[in-house]
Design a protein around this nucleic acid. Structure first.
Length: 870
RNA sequence: GCCCACGUGGCGGAAUUGGUAGACGCAAGGGACUUAAAAUCCCUCGAUCUUUUUGAUCGUGCCGGUUCGAGUCCGGCCGUGGGCACCA
């Protein structure tokens, strides 16, 4: 098996005495050590004067970094270094989202403690990250599983509790009876637990909730201000919050039947109502179930069916007539049946709906099935009401209201307004805003999480742990030989005395959802404090995060929870900031081709010999089928280990490559040849600067009074590069910054001679190092040093370009005839229109083409184009 | 089903936001240097046609529209990707 060449070593002093090549391995270690020794990237303590806070979403310590991390943290690092060079006080911290299930699973498999595994992973990953050379302030590092972190989180929870933003209620959850834990919806596969394979039950459990719904409208409104967030993310959050406006109204019970309140977004169709449907766990259904076994049986059936998407998709719309009858407030004489139905949700609206079959597909299906009346009340505006019929499809579009006394002739939106005002006038209903967003259930029946600081006392009930007793630390002496939460069976940790009455009591054994941990970590980074969750003065100065970077998979939950938590802290008076992340950037994934043997097994890229002809297995010689490029994943084995890449090519080449080609928000296609291209450029940068060093003027030389044309042209390239790279960084278009660097190096490919050459060369190669700095920091520092600068590059200011040098004296004007390009001419810039027109028409090719034709019109766009219309 | 985004050479992608489509890179082909290789350097590189340079025609998923001019704006399709989904 041919060993892949170790480029970094080959390039060093080992063999070749020829023109010196850049040794990445040696140089990168050298500069990483220097940066660390100098505390080069430590953010200023106390209040910064000119703050800029760059943050990448902190990683879960799985044990190894992957290419997605490399891409994510490289982007952030470019921004951090660039902003620092611009003179900002930069905060660029790092930490670990360290609680969560994988550690518990590992503990279960190895019979060790989750903390052991987690902290070992952190050590390993930190070492890997440092090899990438990021400009991170490691002094602020923490892991969310540090008691020092989660203790403060417990205190914040108590604040939220005081403010009424945390509460307890009973809720239905997915319960795995074998693992004895609650499962998230994503962990339920075909109605079975993802790990145990057991049938998942729906259980009613008392859980802690955060009142995110209190901020529903505010979170929605706030999205409007976040103009530096991707529209996609704002839209997703908006949909998730799901604001809808409608009418809440009472249907009066007939005989003994109770009144029923329903919510609708289509109050305009109230005259089309033909039945009511209530949720299986609606209070009225519960009451009826006591007396009527058939209703109880129906309820049971409803609760048994799964909550998965497929189950819902397949489940038929079913209902059971309760025998109750109600009347609509607008038609007191028309009795409507009340059904218990499996499709009505208790926790949205009022848990009861009126069915209007003519204008809702689901209601129509239901009505056909149970033979209920279908009365259309909206018709297409241009259609004759006599010929309008509802067939198998409900009519849901806009139209004209009819069959509705008082509303006839109105449009849907007009009718909505009118009926709401009538309802409010006559006191049978009110206009209501409803949100899809539910309160955030934060209880998890897990060990490896932040303990919820609550004590349950048989006398006093739910008692918060007094703040002076915090943190409630996880006990170390736990075993994972049995499924379930070891906190529940811990002999001493659980049993305590009630802080209020001193009677024997028990700790809450649930821990927080790990999304709680990540909802405020960025605040603690900004204001580290021993005694407080965060120092408010510092936090208020650094926050909001100026640039937040992470995967789009967190577009909803993490970002929404963090936005909520920040608002909650603000309401508690802890913080002045409302929106935590000023600018957000979401990255695409890192993808790689997949290789598959004939037996269907996946093959790792490192075992594959890839050529333009195809892919062959290095060991077996088998021809492999090449699949399309998809997200790197262990299951498809299309993964590349960053350590291997850094060892072979160096961090700068890896950084350069992940920044090149693809715009950052799109998926990145990893390829070996692409990486080699990046490596070649790093070498070229080195070679090009070296080649010109001899000819460069000494540091600090006076600028010569004039330059020859060739030299002026080099200066122009230099300043064009400054302009382009700067603009690309401002727009986070790193692929364009790389392209600009390539162009710049192309301009430097030949020796430069002429008046002022040495000064211009000095300017060019200094600039090359400075511009490369944020992207390839190690080689840039090394070049900077060899160019004779005393001050390290990381402490050097970003260059400015001279706009005068970029000003063109002549412009190339395209000449079109009837919109088709026929010729181009060079003319002085800003020539007046008449002169441009004259020159264009005189151009030989144009004159020839126009011979004999009648010119109808000539359009002149200054400095750009002339279009002759004939 | 509903909502959204995207579709440009063999590939990743540029295109000053309505003004010369294909910057920059990768791959490919040809050449130079070399005993040879590696490395490096130079040339070609959207398609078709034309006798050659000149040049012509077509070309940004498809069909149509607006405009002197459309990758860009509008309408309708097709395709890919993403989000939500018994939400009343």
């Amino acid at each position: 098996m041919p060993e892949k060449l170790n480029q970094a070593e080959v390039s060093g002093a080992s063999s070749d005495p020829g023109p010196e090549r850049y040794n990445a391995a040696v140089t990168e270690a050298k500069w990483q050590a220097r940066w660390e020794a100098a505390d080069a990237f430590k953010a200023p303590e106390g209040a910064p004067g000119n703050p800029y806070y760059v943050l990448e979403m902190f990683p879960y310590p799985s044990g190894r970094i992957h290419m997605g991390h490399v891409r994510n943290y490289t982007q952030g690092d470019v921004i951090a270094r660039y902003k620092r060079a611009q003179g900002f006080d930069v905060l660029h911290p790092m930490g670990w989202d360290a609680f969560g299930m994988p550690a518990e699973n590992a503990a279960f498999e190895r019979q060790s403690h989750p903390g052991t595994w987690t902290y070992a992973n952190i050590e390993a990953m930190r070492a890997q990250f440092k090899k990438l050379g990021p400009a991170i302030d490691w002094t602020r590092e923490f892991a969310t599983c540090d008691p020092d972190y989660y203790g403060h989180q417990q205190a914040l929870f108590l604040d939220l509790l005081d403010a009424g933003l945390a509460y307890r209620k009973s809720a239905q959850v997915n319960w795995d009876p074998v693992d004895m834990t609650v499962l998230a919806n994503e962990q339920v596969i075909d109605g079975k637990g993802w790990r145990s394979g057991a049938d998942v039950e729906r259980r009613e459990l008392t859980q802690w909730f955060f009142k995110i719904s209190a901020f529903a409208d505010d979170l929605l409104q706030g999205l409007g201000e976040l103009d530096a967030w991707p529209d996609k993310v704002r839209l997703m959050q908006g949909n998730w919050i799901g604001k809808s406006q409608g009418l809440k109204l009472q249907f009066r019970g007939v005989d003994d039947a109770p009144d029923i309140e329903v919510y609708t977004t289509r109050p305009d169709t109230i005259y089309g109502a033909s039945f009511l449907a209530i949720a299986a766990n609606h209070p009225i259904a519960l009451e009826l179930a006591d007396k009527h076994p058939d209703i109880e049986a129906f309820r049971q059936m409803c609760t048994q069916s799964g909550t998965s998407e497929e189950a819902l998709e397949k489940a038929e719309k079913q209902g059971l007539d309760t025998g109750l009858r109600v009347v609509s407030p607008v038609e007191p004489d028309r009795l409507l049946p009340v059904y218990v139905a499996n499709f009505v949700l208790m926790d949205y609206g009022t848990g009861a709906v009126f069915g209007c079959p003519a204008h809702d597909q689901r209601d129509l299906d239901f009505a056909r099935k149970y033979n209920l009346s279908v009365r259309p009340v909206v018709r297409p505006s241009k259609q004759d009401p006599k010929t309008f019929r509802i067939g198998d499809e409900a009519y849901v579009a806009d139209g004209t209201i009819y069959n509705s006394p008082g509303l006839d002739g109105l449009s849907v939106s007009e009718a909505k307004k009118k009926i709401i005002s009538i309802a409010e006038r006559d006191y049978w209903g009110s206009g209501t805003t409803t949100f899809r967003l539910r309160d955030w259930g934060v209880s998890r029946q897990r060990y490896w999480g932040c303990p919820i600081p609550i004590i349950h006392c048989p006398e006093c009930g739910v008692v918060p742990v007094p703040k002076e007793d915090l943190p409630v630390v996880l006990p170390e002496d736990v075993t994972f030989d049995k499924p379930g939460n070891p906190l529940e069976r811990h002999p001493t940790w659980r049993n305590v005395v009630c802080p209020q009455c001193g009677a024997p009591a028990q700790r809450e054994t649930d821990t927080f959802d790990t999304f709680v941990d990540s909802s405020w970590y960025f605040i603690r980074f900004a204001g580290p404090s021993k005694d407080m969750a965060f120092d408010p003065e510092q936090a208020n100065t650094w926050l909001p995060v100026d640039q937040y970077i992470g995967g789009v998979e967190h577009a909803i939950l993490h970002l929404l929870y963090a936005r909520f938590f920040t608002r909650a802290l603000q309401r508690c008076g802890k913080l002045e900031v409302v929106e935590p992340f000023k600018r957000l950037f979401t990255l695409g994934m890192v993808c790689h081709e997949t290789y598959q043997a004939q037996d269907g097994s996946w093959v790792l890229p490192e075992e594959v010999e890839r050529s333009s002809a195809g892919a062959v297995h290095l060991k077996t010689g088998e021809t492999l089928s090449i699949g399309r490029s998809v997200k790197m994943s262990k299951s498809k084995k299309n993964v590349i280990d960053p350590d291997d890449i850094i060892a072979q090519y160096g961090a700068d080449a890896a950084r350069w490559f992940v920044l090149s080609d693809s715009p950052p928000e799109r998926d990145f296609l990893w390829s070996d040849v692409g990486l080699e291209g990046a490596w070649r450029f790093i070498q070229r940068l080195w070679r090009t600067v070296q080649a010109h060093t001899q000819a460069a003027a000494p540091l600090g030389a006076d600028m010569p009074p004039e330059f020859s044309d060739d030299v002026a042209s080099l200066r122009k390239s230099t300043h064009q590069a400054i302009k382009d790279v700067t603009a690309a960084f401002e727009g986070l278009q790193f692929n364009k910054a790389i392209a600009a660097m390539h162009s710049f190096m192309n301009a430097l490919s030949a020796p430069v001679t002429g008046t002022g050459a040495s000064w211009a060369v000095r300017e060019a190669i200094d600039t090359a190092a400075l511009l490369a700095g944020p992207m390839a920091p190690h080689i840039a520092e090394e070049l900077w040093e060899t160019l004779g600068h005393d001050q390290p590059l990381y402490a050097t200011r970003w260059p400015a370009f001279d706009a005068d040098l970029l000003r063109e004296d002549t412009v190339t004007i395209a000449i079109q005839i009837k919109g088709k390009l026929r010729a181009t001419i060079d003319l002085p810039k800003d020539l007046d229109k008449a002169a441009v027109e004259e020159a264009a028409l005189a151009e030989p090719k144009i004159a020839a083409s126009l011979a004999g034709a009648t010119i109808r019109k000539v359009i002149v766009v200054p400095n750009r184009i002339v279009n002759v219309v004939i």
